[in-house]
Amino acid sequence: MVRRRVDASPGGVVNLSSHPDVRNTGVPRVLSGRGLWLAAAVALLAGCASAARVEVASQFPTPLVEPLPVRAAVYYEDALRQFAHSETIPQHSQWEFELGQASLSLFRPLFGALFQQVETLERAPQPGEIPHVDLIIAPRLERFEFDIPRHRDSRFAEVWMQYRLFVYAPDGTPIAEWPVTGYGKSAASGTLPRAALHDAAVRAMREAGATISVRFASQPDVRNWLQENRHAPHAAQNGDG
């Protein structure tokens, strides 16, 4: 998929209060006769030019997993907090996604359930700055792709995304780096399936969250670290999935 950042034009708001044609009645004279047609045409063109916006907003559930006996600190970098994706589907439509807040809504309860103790860092820590934790985690959303039904036989809007979890020791030593993917699809209708794309994005995020909560402890580097540091999870705990 082609990624392109598009600066959307502001939403066509015109202040008519100072216009000479606006009389005391409050009815602008410009909106009569030919002007009405002109305004309609401009509005139509503006509508065609602006991108369809999907602001992913959802409350994600807290995973039902036994917490690992680990004290963790999580740093959400600005790129994750403000993640946006713009893309134009040639000869079809233009889309803008905002996933920053949704990612935070996904990770906060997730890490809260996954570790015995969690704190959120406001800035990137210096090596050795927070020695009272066992792990530092920095998630990143590094890929986002989507598709909408464009053929008669296709019925689903689809979203695919990839987070990457960076896991460090408090002294800054890298422990693990784990790409986690999520996929979601949702039945779409209409030419601009905004709701279906939103639903598909939420599903993809839920899948990524599910994978992290079930398989974090079984990642080879994480598992080795847990064993070496005697934080190994109990039997039947998360990590054996």
Binding site: L64, Y183, R206, A210, T211
Partner: peptide, 12 residues
């Protein structure tokens, strides 16, 4: 599904 998250997610 929310109460039992993530155990009834499609992938799990």
């Amino acid at each position: 599904v929310n109460g039992l998250y993530p155990w009834f997610e499609p992938a799990i």
